[in-house]
Computed example of a mutant assay.
Amino acid sequence: MIPGADEARSLVLDEGTVPERLDRVLARVFDDLSRARLQGLVREGLVRCDGIVVRDPARKVGAGCRINLSVPAPLPAEPLGEALPLAVVHEDEDLIVIDKPAGLVVHPAAGHEDGTLVNRLIAHCGVSLSGIGGVRRPGIVHRLDKDTSGLLVVAKNDLAHQGLSAQFADHGRSGALERAYLALVWNVPEPRAGTIRANLARSRHNREKIAVVRDGEGREAITHYRVEDVHGEGGVTALLRCHLETGRTHQIRVHLSHRGHPLLGDAVYGGAFKTKAARLSEPARAALDVLGRQALHAVELGFLHPRSGERLRFESPLPADFSRLLAALG
């Protein structure tokens, strides 16, 4: 195909084919495009059945129908590419796994229009990005907070975006997706291994915060945790390994704060615990000041490759600021 040109695709349905929705037929045959993307192409008048433009994705098509599809060349990504450092853990034609440093915003937004992970990915991937939703851009299937470090996977085409999105939507309940975080918290949770089930929603008092709400409100949120280590006399702080069964905004931070164990350095959900820093040793207080963020790191990420079905699993070493704090708490 000529770069920048529309791509023409066609198929003829076999004799004996049972009448079926057009969008389902297209999604089954052209599985590198999402069903939503194909429905959009139909509505844009880019699909012909026996030479006639069809704009209804639910239109039934059957035996002998000749279908022609025109796929527009991907539009340039709206955010601009920026050739800035990027810690690539794994990359292939479908996806890229990044070890995100703390302080890096994932997607452009008000106040963070450039310098984001997306800007860096556009520059790094270049022409290897294909049209996700018709735009040449990386497909963000999950995010990490600006000040959370660790592993993040990004899709480079529609097929990968569909496959990864399905795994993240399932939240690992089928066993395909694994996500683990290391968190440093105040006090030692009891029991030392357990599950936090508490629905989350945007706070009514501060729209920039997430809050625990009553059952029947908000969205289901489930966090599994296990105490890995305890520091200080009487257990001033503890290192937890957390596994997500759901992936809500600020989930680990809110759940642990709700249980009385906010993350060290979390100014949003742990502000009431600032005075507890006085119980730390002088080296630990200094290391916490240097950290200057919530002590949360996405340490493990596993999933099935959306094209090959191969199980991929990655681990990220603790960043220097987190390691220094952990050693000082020692």
Rank of each mutant, 00 (worst) to 15 (best):
I196H: 09
G265F: 00
R324Y: 00
V54Q: 11
V97E: 05
L144W: 00
E310N: 13
R48T: 11
S203D: 08
L291W: 04
K146R: 11
F322V: 07
V299A: 15
L291H: 04
A327W: 00
H243I: 13
G51I: 00
D321Q: 08
A201M: 07
I96N: 05
S165T: 13
V141T: 10
A286G: 12
A166I: 14
K274L: 14
E78P: 11
A284E: 00
A160H: 04
R136E: 11
F273E: 15
L256M: 14
F168C: 06
Y225M: 06
P76D: 11
G134V: 02
V47E: 02
V127Y: 05
R24Y: 10
H90W: 13
R293N: 00
R324N: 07
P57C: 01
A169L: 15
G139H: 06
L104G: 07
Q294L: 13
N206Y: 09
V135Q: 14
R241P: 09
P74V: 08
E91M: 08
R253F: 01
A328P: 00
A176R: 15
G133M: 07
S165Y: 09
G172A: 12
R120L: 04
K100D: 08
P138M: 02
I252M: 04
H305V: 04
R202W: 02
R197L: 14
S149M: 05
G111S: 01
C125A: 01
A267Q: 12
D32Q: 15
K209V: 00
A286Q: 15
S165I: 11
A63R: 06
S165D: 15
V212M: 12
V268M: 13
A267H: 10
A87I: 09
H305S: 05
L95A: 07
L152C: 09
L264H: 02
N68M: 10
V97M: 07
L177T: 10
R259P: 10
L184N: 00
S281Y: 04
H250T: 05
R324K: 07
A169N: 14
V105C: 01
G134Y: 00
E93K: 14
R21V: 02
N119S: 02
P19K: 03
L177C: 09
T249H: 12
V212C: 08
H258Q: 08
G64P: 02
L46W: 06
A284N: 01
L38T: 07
L11E: 13
L84F: 05
R202V: 11
P319K: 07
T237N: 12
I222Y: 12
L104A: 07
R59T: 12
T195A: 11
D99P: 02
E310V: 14
R137D: 08
S257I: 07
G51K: 00
H205A: 06
A277F: 09
H224F: 06
L296T: 02
G45D: 03
R66I: 11
D32T: 15
D23H: 10
R202A: 02
V153R: 05
F30K: 04
L325W: 00
G194M: 01
A284C: 06
L11V: 14
K60C: 01
D145W: 03
P306T: 13
K274C: 10
L22R: 10
H258S: 13
L84C: 04
L13M: 00
A5S: 14
P138H: 05
D99K: 08
A110L: 13
W186Q: 03
D215E: 15
R59G: 05
D56A: 13
H161C: 12
R204S: 10
L200C: 03
P191C: 11
R307Y: 10
